[in-house]
Design a protein around this nucleic acid. Structure first.
Length: 463
RNA sequence: GGCGGCGUGGCCGAGUGGUUAGGCAGGGGCCUGCAAAGCCCCGUACUCCGGUUCGAAUCCGGACGCCGCCUCCA
């Protein structure tokens, strides 16, 4: 079973499943007020890979990822654009799913919206008020962090040291600067929901704890998200679960940043590249490859150079797919190992890749094994073992698909004119008119085709 | 100030107490009409200073540099 770093115990340990054969995972999703950037892309890809691998390995996976569709940022942005909050969040959410689809990220089994769970959140807040873990101020309801003895456990800090580091809060009425809003009373013209403690909207931290428990139940297996969510967001979710008396996530996992030079990419720093921009000019699989070949907890540098590097690396795998005419493992369903033949060398490879991934999601190591196997398959084919080579190549394709990376054999439709040019070139070559043959290859190149002469004849692919 | 992380060959980027990471780029060769793809060979890295050890880039201590969280953030 998978060994995974757990942020709460601060060690790599086995991901234990509450229900045998079934994993329950919650991933904090986007607040939809702006375009997703490369950091969100990494976030989605890292956990998509984990999820796919579990499915590939034969587990049922309940994967829940929320959409925050009401929040201060949404209200601000909507006002600035003179559109309704709903209009803005719908638009941006569509953009999000478009980007996810382009990246090949499988949709969650559930994508709960904050606005659809307000009733449940109100009930939770009432319970916290009743138990004295929450208190009311003029502008809303706040959580009393002093009520949770081990507040800070997730971030490895004590209440005192957190308090010492807290910056001055605008709301001086809070009992502690660490206390956070469970409910914000509505100001003029803001979207709001009725509640016993006054009309308003839920705080962000309440949404995730309520929705994860509602959909996955108590003691679900894994809660994951970006490192920046560890504190305060996840800490606060956990604190609420504690005072609500509900068993919460049994394992916490956080992934690292996308870096721009020496800085974290973030919306606040304004140094971000939108996913839409990247996907417009790059094969999305190259970004997945880039993410896969670094460790999920390490910072990852994304520059035009590293992206181009990944594109060329991907080309090596695609070349393998072409050489062995690997079937396109397409389709919306997640791939299953049981659909493939992993006997012999293929099984050895599968074991290597599995043990790498199960070692705290060491996809870089897994990929290294796949590249080794790529050489191996090519060598086998070069040395007269086409069957062994093809079997290994199929395993490589399947294992890549298990991580969500689909290799492309060339299945480009060759248009009639180009096909004629290819025939002409073959004729020229047969007549040893190489000047003519090269001119035709040049012509095909201008038409966007790369032509390779193989023992089986000319092979065409899009440049 | 508190907490956490990082520093690897031209670039990206894993990992590890002694045995090849991997990719990309580069050089040489084979194959090819020439290419492409593929194969073979080549660089011999781990911030610095101490220490532990038969042996450390890997463990310990220190120094320097950098990053992040402590406020919204994947």
């Amino acid at each position: 079973m998978l060994q995974l770093f757990d942020s709460l115990s601060a060690q790599v340990r086995e991901l234990r499943l509450r229900d045998e054969g079934r994993a329950s995972i919650y991933l904090c999703g986007p607040t939809v007020y702006d375009l997703p950037h490369l950091g969100h892309g990494r976030h989605a890809l890292v956990w998509d890979v984990l999820r796919r691998w579990l499915v590939f390995s034969g587990l049922e996976v309940d994967f829940v990822s929320n959409v925050t569709d009401i929040d201060d940022k949404i209200i601000e942005r909507a006002a600035a654009e003179h559109v309704s909050e709903a209009e803005l969040s719908t638009r941006e959410e569509n953009e999000w799913w478009r980007a996810m689809a382009a990246l090949g990220v499988a949709p969650p089994n559930h994508a709960p919206h904050a606005t659809a769970y307000v009733e449940e959140m109100v009930a939770a807040i009432v319970a916290m008020l009743d138990s004295g873990a929450a208190y009311e101020l003029s502008d809303g309801v706040y959580f009393d962090t002093s009520r949770v003895g081990d507040y800070g456990a997730l971030s490895g800090q004590s209440l005192d040291s957190l308090r010492a580091g807290a910056r001055v809060e605008p709301n001086e009425a809070k009992r502690s600067p660490l206390d956070f809003a469970l409910w914000k009373r509505a100001k003029e013209a803001e979207p709001s929901w009725e509640a016993p403690f006054g009309a308003g909207r839920p705080g962000w931290h309440t949404e995730c704890v309520v929705m994860s428990l509602a959909l996955l139940g108590e003691g679900f297996d894994l809660h994951c998200g970006g490192l920046d969510l560890k504190f305060p967001h996840h800490e606060n979710e956990r604190a609420q679960a504690v005072v609500l008396g509900q068993r919460f996530a049994q394992h916490w996992a956080h992934h690292g940043w996308v870096m721009v030079g020496e800085e974290k990419m973030s919306k606040s720093l304004g140094n971000f590249t939108s996913l839409t921009d990247l996907l417009g000019q790059t094969d999305p699989r190259a970004y997945r490859l880039l993410v896969l070949r670094s460790h999920y907890r390490s910072p990852l540098e994304v520059t035009p150079e590293t992206v181009a590097d990944a594109e060329r690396a991907l080309e090596r795998l695609d070349a393998l797919a072409r050489r062995f005419s690997l079937p396109a493992l397409a389709g919306e369903r997640l791939e299953l190992a049981s659909d493939f033949d992993f006997s012999g060398e293929a099984g050895v490879l599968r074991a290597r890749v599995s043990s790498a991934i199960e070692d705290d999601l060491d996809t870089a190591q897994a990929l290294a094994k796949l590249f080794d196997a790529t050489s191996q398959a090519n060598v086998l084919a070069d040395r007269g073992n086409p069957r062994g080579a093809a079997q290994l190549a199929r395993a490589i394709g399947a294992l890549c698909a298990g991580m969500g990376l689909r290799l492309h054999a060339s299945d480009d439709e060759v248009d009639e004119t180009s096909a004629d040019l290819v025939s002409e070139r073959e004729a020229a070559r047969a007549a040893q008119d190489y000047a003519r043959a090269d001119a035709l290859r040049e012509e095909l190149s201008r038409r966007g085709w790369i032509i390779e002469d193989t023992p089986e004849g000319p092979a065409m692919r899009r440049a």
